[in-house]
């Protein structure tokens, strides 16, 4: 993402031949045209349209009354939006660190060269092939208070049965746990790839020097892995802000809005309550959160990350 630097500048001698230059210009744009049109219609236009709609009272037919910042005032003061912000932040905190640590742990385990490791690599990456809908249905069964496996374990250990998805104290945790599992495959695959890119000479030298595994981990593996970790942290943050499927299937934002994360809240306002103005205002807030997060991580990451 940060490689705009290595784009070669247009060499000056070409500008002396205006005709050829014009042709190159047109041909270049022709190759980019499909992308530009599609991005224009399905990314940039709707982004501006969302900002525009956020200043109006609107339904699915379009805007009907300009209200300025009223949508923003309304959502910022509404309890529902506040609980949605709280749910989103908690959800991000529950899922991102745990998910990355789990993936890192599994990747370190399977970075050893031993017999049969390929099988474990395949198994650990398998959740990447699982859709959110399918995974959610499976977890829904596992959380079933009477026959699900979690209740069985709780019962076996002598704990009272918990209504995982119906209890406002546990629902978000339950959804988060299932999300950590769902996202593990992708994060694992990325981190394993990063580990395998590390120059093996570094480890050979460490072996000669006879340093401990933990020292090696702290001084070689993690620093060399930092660009990968930096990438996966950014992507995981953005992904978890965009969570929708598991909420829709497992809890529908309930109970008492404890799992009403931002994208679900946008969806509900736009397509169920038919309040497109409020949905747009929330979408704009989501947009700025993601933008801020990406910018912040780039700024912080640039300094701390060790590039080879």
């Amino acid at each position: 993402m940060n490689d705009s630097r290595d784009l070669q500048p247009v060499p000056p001698q070409e500008s002396r031949r205006p005709k050829r230059n014009l042709f190159a210009f047109l041909e270049g744009w022709l190759y980019l045209l499909p992308s530009i049109i599609l991005f224009g219609v399905f990314v940039f236009y709707p982004m501006f349209r969302t900002i525009y709609l956020s200043f109006f009272l609107a339904d699915q037919m379009g805007p009907f009354e300009f209200v300025g910042l009223e949508n923003y005032q309304y959502i910022l003061s509404s309890d529902s939006f506040q609980s949605s912000v709280k749910a989103t932040i908690l959800f991000v905190l529950y899922t991102v660190p745990a998910g990355i640590l789990l993936a890192l742990f599994l990747a370190l385990l399977t970075n050893e060269k031993i017999k049969g490791i390929g099988i474990f690599r395949t198994l650990f990456s398998s959740t990447m092939g699982m859709s959110v809908a399918a995974s959610s249905v499976i977890w829904m069964f596992m959380y079933n208070p009477s026959i699900g496996v979690f209740s069985r374990i709780a019962e076996w250990l002598g704990f009272p049965a918990i209504q995982w998805l119906q209890d406002p104290d546990y629902a978000l945790l339950a959804v988060s746990l299932s999300t950590v599992w769902m996202n593990a495959g992708f994060a694992y695959l990325i981190i394993l790839g990063g580990l395998q890119n590390i120059d093996t000479h570094l480890y050979e030298n460490a072996k000669v020097a006879g340093v401990s595994y933990l020292y090696q981990l702290r001084r070689i593996t993690l620093p060399m892995l930092s660009p990968t970790l930096f990438f996966i942290v950014t992507v995981s943050f953005i992904n978890s802000f965009q969570t929708f499927g598991q909420i829709d299937i497992l809890t529908k934002g309930g109970p008492v809005e404890s799992t009403n994360v931002i994208v679900y809240s946008i969806y509900k306002d736009a397509f169920i309550n038919n309040d497109v103005g409020s949905a747009s205002a929330q979408a704009v807030i989501l947009f700025f959160c993601v933008l801020l997060l990406t910018a912040l991580q780039f700024k912080l990451g640039e300094r701390k990350v060790h590039y080879q």
Partner: peptide, 24 residues
């Protein structure tokens, strides 16, 4: 190599910062 290529490249990067759900 042509005029405006770097600008388009920047446009491509910026699409990655627009969450798809914000524009749905």
């Amino acid at each position: 190599k042509f005029k405006g290529r770097d600008f388009v490249f920047f446009l491509f990067i910026s699409t990655m910062m627009i969450p798809w759900e914000a524009t749905m």
